[in-house]
Write a protein that binds this DNA or RNA. Sequence first.
DNA 1: CTGAAAGCGCTTACAG
DNA 2: CTGAAAGCGCTTACAG
Lengths: 377, 377
Amino acid sequence: MSFRGHSFAYPSGGKFLMSDEEESGPQESGRSLRDEFRNRRPTINDVARLTGVSKKTVSRVINKSPAVKEDTREAILRVMHEIGYAPDPQARGLAFRRSFLIGMIYDNPNPQYVVNMQQGLLDGMRGTGFELVVHPCDRASETFLSDVRNFVERQKLFGVVLTPSVSEDERVPPMLREIGCAFIRIASVSLDEPEHMIVTRDHLGGEAAGRHLASLGHSRIGFISGRPSFRSSHERRRGLEAGLAEHGLTLDDSLVAQGAYTFESGYDCARTLLERADRPTAIFAANDEMAAGVLQAARSLDIRVPDQLSVVGYDNFQLAERLWPRLTTVHTPTREVGRRASTKLINPQIAPGTEQDDPRALPSLVVRESSAPPPAG
Amino acid sequence: MSFRGHSFAYPSGGKFLMSDEEESGPQESGRSLRDEFRNRRPTINDVARLTGVSKKTVSRVINKSPAVKEDTREAILRVMHEIGYAPDPQARGLAFRRSFLIGMIYDNPNPQYVVNMQQGLLDGMRGTGFELVVHPCDRASETFLSDVRNFVERQKLFGVVLTPSVSEDERVPPMLREIGCAFIRIASVSLDEPEHMIVTRDHLGGEAAGRHLASLGHSRIGFISGRPSFRSSHERRRGLEAGLAEHGLTLDDSLVAQGAYTFESGYDCARTLLERADRPTAIFAANDEMAAGVLQAARSLDIRVPDQLSVVGYDNFQLAERLWPRLTTVHTPTREVGRRASTKLINPQIAPGTEQDDPRALPSLVVRESSAPPPAG
DNA sequence: CTGAAAGCGCTTACAG
DNA sequence: CTGAAAGCGCTTACAG
């Protein structure tokens, strides 16, 4: 008999496993109990009655209080298992004055980012009994702050994860602190106390891109940024400059174009850069969408990639492999970052910093066919 | 003074607007009330006390019961407005034995589909007080059905939206009916009673693709399908055949390759079709991902698109515009479909069928540069 | 048209 | 280590 475990959370973040209702073992009186709960889910009162203890003691077991005698705990767990009991998050939430919902608040329009992040957050929540509530928003809206506040307050969210660029908005954290909502900010650089941050260190990715292009022999390198209000764009540029510096190169300001992280802006910026007489031999775009625009622009000008122009992007979204030539880019471990974010939110006691330099959470260069040595002469 | 309205739901799906707390008008005693609720959200008891009625009457107003004298209702609404009251969904849910959460249950791995659908569902939920809980799943898992059941039962979901291919799984609806959870199935063809269905009518999109290729003069047309277990693939093929039939053409079975809706499968199938001596002059791939694979395969064989080969996809995801040449494809109004699904779930009383043939909810052909007349001779 | 009582399924605060 | 009472913020069932 296989045990497909399901589990539920307790406030401090742990879980315990129980078999599914359909699969509890053959127990004396198991049949009649099962019948009793055919049309009604068992409650804490049922567990208390069947175990012969008070519901408070059952509550202690649910919440993993150490102040329960081992025998009692085991008896209670046995009954829970037998009748397929799982605590009602709504009722627990009402008593706790807090739900078991985690909000993802985001304004990044890239579907791949959103989905990878959601998957990562769910990875970190699996088996904890928490659920993910998604909340796209618009920072430019007049009602942005009150929208977020209403969302968090009304649902009494356990906590929220803020992704760029919402995570960079300095109006949000004070508001969340005021209403006592836990939060994690995901950003390219630290903006808050360590317990509130997951830092993606995008400058490392930029550095790898710069190092790659420099070591291929490029020296006229263009950069297409995102909007100046996006920290990631700064960090990626800062990294690029550091990577070039290792090879004694500097970024020529006249080869920097300001994009907006969109395909169209990448196209436009690339046209501008590539129509110059002294055009760059390589372009680093601050994300894959813009790099796709660069490829399109190069094609429109009959510039062959990578023979006449190298292109490097940032993100390593699926798009990078669908383009032609396949895009050299910086991989961002978005899902892994999400997993860490929700894990940290649920288990704030985990010491911060311990997982800091795990390479799985850091950006890394993926070399494909869009980059090559510059044309001779 | 502008009123940024917020709203909350009542079980039958309506809403009413209230100004934000920060913005209630200057009222006598408004100041002190505001102070009282600085550190505590007002409850139904506060509203009852301040209006001088019982909380049951307040509850009637919240739930839009007609059995409240107009004066009383107005007085209650005024107090709610003044103190910034919003009912607690958790408490309401506990009493209703049902939450105000709507689940999206999906297994489609395409990020663009998932995000568009989520946005659409949220569009239909805006201002209703419902929130969206996302739940990816794996139909092939042994625990699939019990996972879904646990999710729905534990959260006491108000309802769920099932997207393909989960929506096509015939084990799910009986289970949901048994536990009394409302649901909407989104599928390419009707699989259930109208009140449980949003039908995307994919055969119409296939038809448009077939008509397009035939009218360009193609007669050797290849088709790359999804897995046979996906209804959408059948429907798209059925439509293709209908579109060709209008021009007196039939689909040659030997030019049909079975893919799996993935980029890689599109590539592999296209290689097979294009390496034939009598290769097709056009390929209709049942989704954009596979069409991207077709472009890659054509490139690898030095077959120029669209001069030597026309390619048509299905979905019109962003990818279609990033590819080269830009992809002719069938636009699927996923967000609009999602909006309808959540609206229907929340307001089941809306007569089904009324919005059936609204073109905004139907697939439509988008012609770009990947299709052209077949090469001469 | 309105309300007092009981209850939804849990936890907190207190007591022992 | 355990429990009886009160409460979280709502709604249902009943009564008038």
